[in-house]
Structures are given as C-alpha cells and as structure tokens.
Design a protein around this nucleic acid. Structure first.
Lengths: 164, 164
DNA sequence: GCCAATGCGTCAACATTGCTGCCATAATCG
DNA sequence: CGATTATGGCAGCAATGTTGACGCATTGGC
C-alpha cells in the first residue's frame, strides 16, 4: 500500500514558489532599470537622479521633505543629487507661500523633457507586459506588489500623484 | 447636446495606470530590500553581497561566468564582492572537473546560515503578500513580472535553480 | 517678544558598488 | 601551435548611500 514515488512536498513547493517570486522581482527590476541607466550615464547622472526627476514630475510643487519621505534616504544624500539637478537646470525651486522655509520643487521644461525621455522606455515596457498578461493579471500584479510594501507606507504609495 | 463634464479620457487613465505600476515597483523593491540591507550593514557588507550569496545558494557549484550572466555586472565588480565573501568564509571555491579553469562556487555552512538569515524576511514578506492577494493574483503577479524581463532573459530567469 | 522646533542646506569623511582599462595565468579548442 | 575562454589582480573614477556637526531662516507656542 505504499506509493513508491514520494508525494509532492507542499513545503518544498512553497519554498520554491517564494524563491521564484524573489527572483522574478530581481530580474524584472534589473531589466526595468537598465534602459534609463544608460541614458543617465551619458549625462553624467545616476539612478538617483532619475528617481528625483520622476517624483518631482509626478508631484509638481512638492517640498523637499515629501521627496525624502518617498525615497527613504538621508537629506545629505538627496541634497547632493538635487543640487546637481538644480545647477544643471532640470529642476527649479520656489519658496513656499504657506511656509516660506519650504522649497517647492518642480521640473523646468528641460527637466520635463528628460523625464519623458527616461520614463518612456519604462512606460512602454510596463504597457507591453500589461497587454501581454491581461487585465486580471495586472490586477493581481498590483495586489501583490501592494502587499510587499510596508504596511504604513501603502496608503502613501497608492496616493501616487498625491492629489487627495 | 453637449455633455458639460469632460468624458473620461482613456489615454489619461492609461498613463495613470502605467505610472502606478512603475511606482508600485519602486516602492515594493525599496521596502523589499530594506530589511536585509540592515543586517548586511552590521556585517560590513552590502546588497551586492546578498545577491551573490543568494544565487550561489540557489545554484551550488555554479561557475563565476554564470553568476556574471545573472547579475549583469562586470567581472571586476563581481570579483571584489566575491573575493570579500571568500576571504570572510561565506563562500568556497572548487576547481571545475570538466574544465579546470572554472571556479565552482558554493556556500560554506557559515554562508548558508547567512543566506537563510538574509532571505528569511524576504520570504516571509512574499509569503504574506501572496497569502493576502490570493492564488489568482499571484499568477498575475508572475505573469506581469515575467513580461517585464528582457525577452532573451526570460527562459533563464524562469529556470531558477537552473536544474534543466 | 523670546525661544525651541522645523525645513533646508552644507562641509567632511567614509564605504559600497558600479564602471573602464590593462595585464597575467591557465586551460581548452581547433 | 595559436586563438579563445575562464578567471584573477590592480589602478582609478563616479555615483550613492551613510553618520555627524553646524548654520540660517522661519514658524509657532507660551
């Protein structure tokens, strides 16, 4: 009455399934960032500059503190990156009206052009993946990614262009 | 006969949808790597060391060239990281039997222990997100992530522990 | 109106992680 | 035997993150 073949081990499958998820995340992120990285390198910029340009483009008029909260880096690290972008004319600062201490950030036309150039490939890549996977898959993709985000960051992340 | 309210713009929605995908990817990856990064910092190591430990643990006996192909960095960059891990006793090298030029990599018991410690939180995070999202969502997650990977890398990525 | 807290910037020093370029060794292949 | 492959080492440079300390303007509470 013994089955000679070992029964599929659910624990092993689970481990395998999780590791596949981890690896897919790594591979996808690796290839997702490769294209803009090339463009940035030509300009003497790095991935951090892209992140700043992206989120400032997404939230025009955002203060520095909001950017820090998104990127989760120190203000010294951001300051170096931001300073370079401002000196290079990609980003503009305006003093806050409600609070004059704030520096409200926005892209210059030159910055907006670079943002489009950098994000274009990524948008296309996501669009292709979405189209190929179908609407239900996209929904699942979003659900799982949201679940991967720290619980206390989820609301902020989903707010996106924080109009709300 | 004019509807005073603007019709929902499908192009805008699409753009918004794609940007949300881009951002979810950023946020998820940010939080996904934060935990192991802390542990690594205590040991004087960085994220690159985790990647090496992870993939060597996953593919015991792999040659350096296979690691390079996964990580997509130069051998000089890898050499520094790998050298440190070997000197610190996390990774062991054995000469290849088929090709004596190859250095086949594997984790030492100490390396395997670190791998478990580093990946444990990530596995738990993925497990929680999977459980919360449901099996169909997990399927969609995998489909979309796979679609984000460069076409000529997909097969290799899905091979995982490359037993095949 | 004083005074602490906030928002932001800066200087300095350091480590990690990429890159390019060059050279060396050993083994394998044709 | 000569070319290619697999790997390693060294030098130098840039980007990106860290901690720590300090400065300056503004804001808000008492």
């Amino acid at each position: 009455m013994n089955d000679p073949r070992p029964v599929a081990n659910p624990l092993f499958l689970r481990e395998e399934e999780l590791r596949q998820g981890i690896e897919l995340l790594f591979y996808a992120y690796r290839d997702f960032t490769a294209e803009p990285d090339k463009i940035l390198a030509e300009l003497g910029l790095g991935r951090a500059h892209h992140r700043v340009i992206y989120f400032v483009g997404r939230n025009p008029g955002m203060p520095v503190s909001a950017l820090l909260d998104i990127l989760k880096i120190t203000k010294q690290s951001l300051s170096r990156v931001l300073g370079k972008l401002i000196r290079a004319g990609f980003i503009q600062q305006k003093a806050g009206t409600r609070d004059a201490r704030q520096r409200l950030l926005e892209l210059t036309p030159k910055g907006a052009a670079l943002e489009r150039r950098l994000t274009e490939g990524q948008r296309r890549r996501v669009a292709t993946a979405y189209r190929g996977a179908g609407a239900d898959a996209v929904d699942g993709f979003r659900k799982v990614l949201t679940g991967l985000i720290d619980e206390n960051e989820r609301l902020k992340a989903l707010a996106g262009g924080s109009r709300g």
